[in-house]
Design a protein around this nucleic acid. Sequence first.
DNA 1: GATGAATGAGTGTTCATTCAT
DNA 2: CATGAATGAACACTCATTCAT
Lengths: 206, 206, 206, 206
Amino acid sequence: MGRPAGVSGADTLAAIRKAAIARIDRFGYEAMNLRDLAADVNIRVGSLYNHVPNKQEFLAGLLEDIMRELLADLDQQVAGLSDPEQCLLQFVRFHIAWHTARRAEVFIGNSELRSLSAPQYARVIALRRRYETYLRNLLLRGRKAGVWQFEDARVTTYALLAMLTGIAHWYRPDGRLSQARLIRLYEQMVQRLLKPGGTCSGSPRA
Amino acid sequence: MGRPAGVSGADTLAAIRKAAIARIDRFGYEAMNLRDLAADVNIRVGSLYNHVPNKQEFLAGLLEDIMRELLADLDQQVAGLSDPEQCLLQFVRFHIAWHTARRAEVFIGNSELRSLSAPQYARVIALRRRYETYLRNLLLRGRKAGVWQFEDARVTTYALLAMLTGIAHWYRPDGRLSQARLIRLYEQMVQRLLKPGGTCSGSPRA
Amino acid sequence: MGRPAGVSGADTLAAIRKAAIARIDRFGYEAMNLRDLAADVNIRVGSLYNHVPNKQEFLAGLLEDIMRELLADLDQQVAGLSDPEQCLLQFVRFHIAWHTARRAEVFIGNSELRSLSAPQYARVIALRRRYETYLRNLLLRGRKAGVWQFEDARVTTYALLAMLTGIAHWYRPDGRLSQARLIRLYEQMVQRLLKPGGTCSGSPRA
Amino acid sequence: MGRPAGVSGADTLAAIRKAAIARIDRFGYEAMNLRDLAADVNIRVGSLYNHVPNKQEFLAGLLEDIMRELLADLDQQVAGLSDPEQCLLQFVRFHIAWHTARRAEVFIGNSELRSLSAPQYARVIALRRRYETYLRNLLLRGRKAGVWQFEDARVTTYALLAMLTGIAHWYRPDGRLSQARLIRLYEQMVQRLLKPGGTCSGSPRA
DNA sequence: GATGAATGAGTGTTCATTCAT
DNA sequence: CATGAATGAACACTCATTCAT
């Protein structure tokens, strides 16, 4: 009943988080019950409360930390780069790498925002906005530099992010496509979408 | 207590569905409770069961009907068209119109698949695949005809759909952009993405 | 599972209240658990919530209604009387009758005030104050009329009420004393305590 | 972690008892949780068990010691006195002094008896009975000596004790009345209540 | 068709208690 | 002695579902 030999609280919390991400990814936050979650990490449900304040705060902390980690990783990945095209390539690679390696985190980070209370939601959304803003500013710099062309920066940002993030909905590590190939395909699409273009064909008007 | 004057069973079911879509959109299926749903349509929870078999089947029916309606509307919209470019323009317009007019339906149609039982899931996914397949075949016809260029049809389909469907995550009817403008912006992006092209610039070939 | 034949919600609620009064009297509010309470009235715990909003509000309503009933009964009992001595006799009789007949209600009405939230507490205390005030005003009228003598009205009121209410701590219907005798004993003590008197004697020193 | 400098075990236990008395007074024994109690004395809940065997025994010991202390203090206070009137004056002074100085102890000593197990209850009640018995015997001696008059010794004892103990329900050290005045008021009331009286008997005059 | 009352399984959470460190 | 981590039993409360009326 007392403390078992050789366990640390930090390890247990990490295990709880990992198990929670998997369960939320598969079933959703509401459908994840704490009894099963505790069983995943081989403790009893009451013991969870030695590590988390409650289910709701736990979710909020989880999502917030996922976003913080994403932002920190991005910062590190694009540190020192300034050329827009280089930055964008790096961004795409980073985004896809993260969204395939951390598919579940990304998925719940998008789908479970609605389960947050208003202030929790605000905190996470603020972080997510920083991510979006990075891309939007990048696009604006590229357009100013004349290397890209698009009409509406905000919509284009949303479109690119949706396109790239959508990967998390279908990607399987053991799937048909290697990660490298995936990156190449999306790099191409992004570039074509932004390339200043022979206004070209398409519909006469577009 | 008998049936109040002027209310037909079909009306009640329609009201229930409408209220459910709103609730699921906002809170998710698991978090929607039938007491509140009943209250939305001014009946008591027990009376719901005069209209729906149970919560789970109700959701499945809802999602399936949404998908069927989407497919039927698409069929009607592209009936008679054969030119790939024309078809695609029509598809984009239709998709955006539907996804803005029926934002909540679309949203829950994507987010609540995980709440379905395996056979229910299979039924809905089969329908959704028909929608994806329509676009993929369209892309293939266009490439064969030489009007578009892309590497992987499946990935391109996912990318386009994710891009277009993402609108449902941020669109607000009273927002900055008219629907017409929204359609124009996305038409452009889709065309640029597919336009055979000056392989040119960007990264040499990638 | 459905509604059993011939049961009315009001009856069930009355039974719940009665059982709760007995349990709170014996074990205290905190120690009364809803499973046992439900078992007392032969329903399952969830069904309690068809009749009460929650444990806390249930307690508050209970205590408030007990106080309201006490006050209503007192009003009725002393209606039409104006002579202070007659009023007081009536008050003592009424108080003892109520506190013996409704011993448990009285007991929890005094002991469980601390389990109320601040606003609930305020509501009940306001009612209780009306009861105290009735007696205090009565004492003041008697003193003005010269039939009683005492120094501090408030303290005397508290002393009399404590003395009379204390009965609820030891009275048993099957005990040594009849209710009639009990009333006579307390009437005497109250009268002696108030009787204007040879201030005198007693202890020369007091 | 070893013992912090300058803290002895006995001090900690005393602090725990003091904190417990305050918490039980305010919220009741059932509602006092050991985590909060530990926090009051700046230790963690597990450490409590270095000082007390368990919650229940802790309460029993607390109440028993309170009663023993009360009795010991009374013994000392009336030691050497034999005249009933003098004894009673001393008793009233002592009772009020103790019940105002140790209001919380007195309060929980009365209200938490129900939280004791049967044998624990028996032990404490035996002590309390000694207190009551002291007063009852005192009354009987006074009546035999002809200085007091009352009908039923037991009921009169209860009435006097209830009256005097009731102070603990409303007394506040910073209130309107000094302790000295409080004592004088109650002395008077007790004396009037016992004074052999003019007459009267029952009600003719009342 | 609608209702209120019932059910039972489950939910998150609390809490006294234990014990290796 | 103090601590953090564990336990298991209990708790109030929720909810989808049923059914006599």
